[in-house]
Design a protein around this nucleic acid. Structure first.
Length: 376
RNA sequence: GGGGAGAUACCAAAGCGGCCAACUGGGGCAGACUGUAAAUCUGCUGGCUGAUGCCUUCGUAGGUUCGAAUCCUGCUCUCCCCA
């Protein structure tokens, strides 16, 4: 993968760049909407592409492997064709499910045994077969199997967890190198830094994963409950070690403020369920602040959803109408709210790229954070 | 006209002598949500109070009882069956 830094902020570590994949070019910093099960929930692929301008989306190894399963994905010719998404896709390895489904998993020397959350059946994930599964899915960027260390964790536990991630990385990398993409387009394999909230471990981990000549590097195990300033500190520690000329992907983060703080620390790629999940739960992010659409105060506010918004739903529907839809649990409410939130996240990154190029990123960021933190 | 059943908080509906300011569901109000087991989850929902607590409530008016949403009597209303 070719990654080119095309602009740098002068007063922070923020940079803007271009990332080439077989399915198109991505400008960074970029937010990648999460589409766990082969769908960004509540958003049509055409809306994703045409209305939102999303350039790359996520899928999830664990979910797609369980359903529809590899047989179907293989017959479909990969996830791109299956879901009719022509842009780049990144798949998470299932490492996060090792963490979030911890009560139905068991570690073995080989890998991690899971009980399916769907039917309870047993499945084994190994650093190797997770590469194979992601070959079958056919994502442009695939992730190493890691363990997202729980927070809080003792230093000794965090170290053990990190070391397992490193051992898995060695095996996963070897397997990745001796296997081939299945659908005629390139795939890139990203290792993941762990180390919990311990700077010494983060340094060890970042140094370790940099010893692999990967196309890009991910920072995992953050925004799992630790204070935000600790997360920022870890990003600083890791980014001081990760190579300048490779994309950096902060996994699972985060709030709009988190994104801006991480961009200013040199992060290039983000994904998070927050804009989509919170949308379905009635929470809207706007450049003037956060709105809980279920709140009584919107019931007769017929003004546009978001007068500053860039998505057509922002000017075509009122706050009162969306509140009605959300409260009535109407499907359209989830659709409108999700379109809005994703368009806000994508706008925020687009604007960040522009400000980095302009050389005004830091002052813009400062002002932006004040605005978007308001509770409306 | 005769017989029967019932009236409980915003709605529905438990409770049938003290553990009841009253189960539960809905509705309402608010909060949470960060590589999605989430169109989910949590809290509150008579009044005053930070809490303990106090005050006013179970159609209505009386009565029995140390004590009543719960037992008795009258009244009002609703529903069902027969004529």
């Amino acid at each position: 993968m070719i990654f080119t830094v095309v602009g740098r902020d002068t007063s922070s570590s923020a940079r803007t760049g271009r990332l080439m994949t077989s399915h198109g070019e991505i400008e960074t910093p970029v937010f990648m909407p999460v589409g766990t099960a082969g769908t960004v929930k509540a958003v049509h692929q055409r809306e994703l592409k045409d209305d939102l301008g999303a350039r790359i989306i996520l899928g999830n190894t664990y979910h797609l492997y369980l359903r529809p399963g590899l047989d179907i994905l293989s017959k479909a010719g990969g996830l791109h064709k299956f879901m009719n998404w022509e842009g780049p896709i990144l798949t998470d390895s299932g490492g996060y499910q090792v963490f979030s489904l911890s009560h139905i998993r068991k570690f073995t020397p080989e890998g991690v045994i899971f009980n399916s959350h769907i039917d309870g059946s047993k499945h084994l994930f190994t650093p190797e077969n997770v590469v194979d599964i992601q070959r079958t899915i056919g994502a442009d960027i695939i992730m190493a199997l890691d363990e997202c260390t729980a927070y809080p964790s003792e230093h000794s536990d965090a170290r053990k967890s990190m070391e397992m991630t490193h051992r898995w990385l060695a095996r996963g990398t070897e397997h990745f190198e001796k296997t081939e993409p299945l659908y005629g387009h390139n795939q890139f394999f990203f290792p993941i830094v762990q180390g919990s909230v311990y700077p010494d471990l983060r340094k060890i981990s970042a140094t370790e994963i940099c010893s692999y000549p990967a196309a890009g590097y991910a920072i995992g195990g953050l925004s799992v409950g630790e204070p935000e300033n600790v997360m920022y500190e870890m990003i600083d520690v890791v980014n001081s070690i990760l190579p300048q000329d490779k994309p950096r992907y902060l996994m699972g983060v985060g709030t709009p403020v988190n994104l801006l703080e991480a961009v200013s620390r040199g992060v290039d790629m983000f994904d998070c369920v927050m804009p989509t999940r919170n949308a379905r739960n009635g929470m809207l992010f706007t450049r003037r602040g956060i709105m809980n659409m279920r709140n009584n105060k919107w019931k007769d506010d017929f003004s546009p959803l978001d007068p500053d918004g860039t998505c057509f739903v922002d000017s075509h529907y009122s706050k009162a109408y969306l509140r009605h839809l959300i409260i009535s649990k109407e499907i359209l409410g989830a659709q409108i709210a999700t379109l809005h939130n994703l368009s806000f996240y994508l706008w925020l990154m687009e604007e960040a790229r522009r400000k980095i190029k302009d050389g005004t990123f830091s002052s813009w960021k400062r002002e932006m954070i004040l605005q978007i933190s308001e509770r409306l």
